[in-house]
Design a protein around this nucleic acid. Structure first.
Length: 624
DNA sequence: GCACCTTTGAAGAAC
DNA sequence: GTTCTTCAAAGGTGC
């Protein structure tokens, strides 16, 4: 169970990321060469997360006073520069860097997106605009900040129904804009009203004066809704910039204001808000009843803990249960109908589905999908995701750190919004369905069918040792199998060297006996097809070794079309500037490999963002 | 209409 | 403690 204030315990993103990067070594030699760089990368990235965690913890209200200072200044300084650079890069130097490195922004939903009543949802509805939190720049822990927090938390009836104001740095006038949520859930948010996580935010007296909204606040009011809305900053990345310094302390709950496409918007539960910010909570009886009607009892927090923002959260997917009771009342004369209605209501209540918070990559995908779609004219998500996966690995540390930070905040906020929620809930919910069962059954079936030829030697034979995994090829035998660990997980590397690095993810690890063989089996076979097919292809293509080449639409589309064929998913690693690095690419692009000797993603490793893109060659003759 | 594909990461379950 | 599985988004595809 994640801990919100785990004292830096939230290294969630860091560890995984370290693994991911660590495993991207293309070969042992390269791993060795880049080991220092990778370690540095891993350290830095880990430190990014840790630092943000530290900052976030240290800034959380009264705990900030009790907590010891951040672990290490050097630790903090380590990432400060890079983050500041990233921030400057993102905001174009529009904002001054606060004393603490950090992006003076928080993320807000893209209000131009059409969450507003007169708009239609955008494909990237859950996007964010850069905003400068109006209460930035007060020195954390200082008297000023504490006072500001105190002020912010003090209930102010005059503001309770007021608009939410913020600033959009992407605009030339840096206008503050009111924001009002009007979609289904009444939003009660006033400028001073502290968000549950607002105490984690540093303040800026420079940009925000309580009670004195800027004169331009009222500009750009939606004529239909009367809701002031900001012009859309066209060049702003919908998410950023954010830094561990600020981001680590600023949740982006407002990102959930924008409903997902096709997803209903629901009020939030607020159990997580009850303790630290009691005064920020305003009891809304109707909302409470709504929550009670829509959420399982354990999801509905005590009445006193309702979050006044009423921020809908797209993570909640639930049918409209509220009106069911009305129908059941109407049909109360008929006992059978009543029971049916009750059953139906209960059934729907059981269907309440609070989705998992998005991880860093998901956030990245959400942001970048549209771009990729536009650039590549692709629509198929599978192909797009492959591209995004490679781009994700191609991201710099700073860029990835931002997403990790976002993801961390996402998890934190999710945790606060739904303190009783657990990923297990979704497991259980879906176990009632058939999807995962089928998938599992399918995998098990595959494992059963292919259980015998798990040894590389048995699978490929001695005459195709180039298709053996690295360790087996080196030892001329399936050493891992002999060790009783199942089949080999490492695909052959590019130049014959061995990819013996630890698997980056559980899905690519050496499977253990029993049912767990199923998934590795499926994911092993596919990469193997990568290695096999190119074996009949020219193994070294100049253009593959010539460094990055911008992907052409044709190529990308080829990859997309290839991915449509089962077992021939696109791996246009060479297209993505050679930044193919996913070591868990399960699919192979036979078609694309034929038409365009694409690099095998299974062989992509050690492609640090800083390194020159190295398109991965397929199994080469040099092995033999 | 539903499951699948495809990606990475997080979290829980299962050893 | 390690490994494996599931789910999160997305939209086309196939059954």
């Amino acid at each position: 169970m994640p801990q919100l204030n785990g004292g830096g315990g939230d290294d969630l993103g860091a560890n995984d990321e370290m693994i991911s990067f660590k495993d991207e070594g293309e070969q042992e030699e390269k791993i060795s060469e880049n080991s220092s760089a990778e370690r540095d990368l891993a350290d830095v990235k880990s430190s990014l997360v840790n630092e943000s965690e530290t900052n976030q913890n240290s800034s959380s209200d009264s705990e900030a006073e009790r907590r010891p200072p951040p672990r290490s200044e050097t630790f903090r300084d380590k990432t400060r520069e890079s983050l500041e650079e990233a921030a400057k890069r993102q905001d174009g130097g529009l904002f001054k860097s606060p004393p603490y490195p950090g992006y003076p922004f928080i993320m807000i939903p893209d209000l131009t997106s059409p969450y507003l009543p007169n708009g239609s949802l955008s494909p990237t509805a859950r996007t964010y605009l850069q905003m400068k939190w109006p209460l930035l720049d007060v020195q954390p822990g200082g008297l000023q900040s504490r006072q500001a927090l105190k002020d912010a938390r003090s209930p102010s009836p005059a503001h309770i129904v007021g608009p939410f104001c913020w600033e959009f740095p992407g605009q030339s006038d840096l206008s503050l804009h009111q924001f009002h949520l009007s979609n289904k859930v009444p939003v009660v948010q006033h400028p001073h009203h502290v968000h549950p996580l607002t105490p984690l935010i540093t303040y800026s007296n420079e940009h925000f004066t309580p009670g004195n909204p800027p004169p331009h606040l009222q500009t750009d009011v939606d004529p239909k809704t009367g809701i002031p809305r900001p012009p859309h900053p066209p060049d702003i990345s919908p998410y950023y910039p954010l830094s561990p310094g600020t981001v680590g302390q600023i949740p982006h709950p407002l990102g959930w204001l924008v409903p997902q496409q096709g997803q209903p918007v629901y009020p939030i539960t607020t159990g997580g808000f009850r303790h630290p910010y009691p005064t920020a909570l305003t009891v809304n009886a109707s909302m409470s009843s709504l929550l009670s009607s829509r959420f399982p009892p354990h999801m509905v927090p005590p009445h006193h803990s309702l979050h006044t923002t009423g921020i809908p959260h797209p993570a909640i997917v639930t049918p409209n249960v509220k009106q069911e009771s009305t129908h059941s009342d109407i049909s109360s004369l008929n006992s059978s109908k009543q029971t049916d209605a009750k059953k139906e209501e209960e059934k729907k209540k059981q269907q309440v589905h609070i989705k998992k918070p998005l991880n860093a990559f998901m956030l990245y995908m959400k942001e970048m999908r549209a771009k990729v779609v536009a650039e590549c004219t692709l629509k198929e998500s599978a192909a797009i995701n492959q591209i995004l996966g490679r781009r994700w690995h191609a991201l710099s540390r700073e860029e990835q750190a931002k997403y990790y930070e976002l993801a961390r905040k996402e998890r934190q906020l999710h945790m606060q919004l739904y303190p009783g929620w657990s990923a297990r809930d979704n497991y259980a919910a879906n176990q009632q369905g058939k999807r995962k069962k089928r998938k599992r059954e399918k995998q098990q079936a595959e494992s059963n069918d292919l259980s015998a030829p798990k040894k590389c030697r048995a699978r490929f034979g001695l005459d195709q040792q180039n298709n053996w995994c690295g360790p087996c090829r080196r030892k001329k035998k399936c050493i891992r199998y002999i060790q009783g660990e199942g089949s080999c997980a490492s695909p052959p590397s590019t130049d014959g060297s061995l990819l013996d690095s630890p698997p980056p993810s559980p899905s690519s690890v050496v499977p253990s006996p029993s049912s767990k063989e199923s998934k590795p089996q499926t994911e092993q076979m596919q990469p193997l097809s990568l290695t096999m097919k190119p074996a009949h292809q020219p193994l070294h293509h100049p253009h593959l070794l010539a460094g990055p080449q911008p992907p052409s639409l044709v190529q990308l589309e080829n990859s997309a079309s290839a991915s449509k064929t089962p077992g021939a998913s696109s791996h246009n690693g060479a297209l993505e500037h050679g930044d193919v690095s996913s070591s868990r690419q399960p699919g192979s692009s036979v078609a694309s490999s034929m038409a365009r000797p694409s690099a095998s993603l299974c062989h992509s490793h050690s492609l640090l963002p800083s390194t020159a893109p190295q398109p991965l060659s397929l199994v080469t003759k040099s092995i033999e």
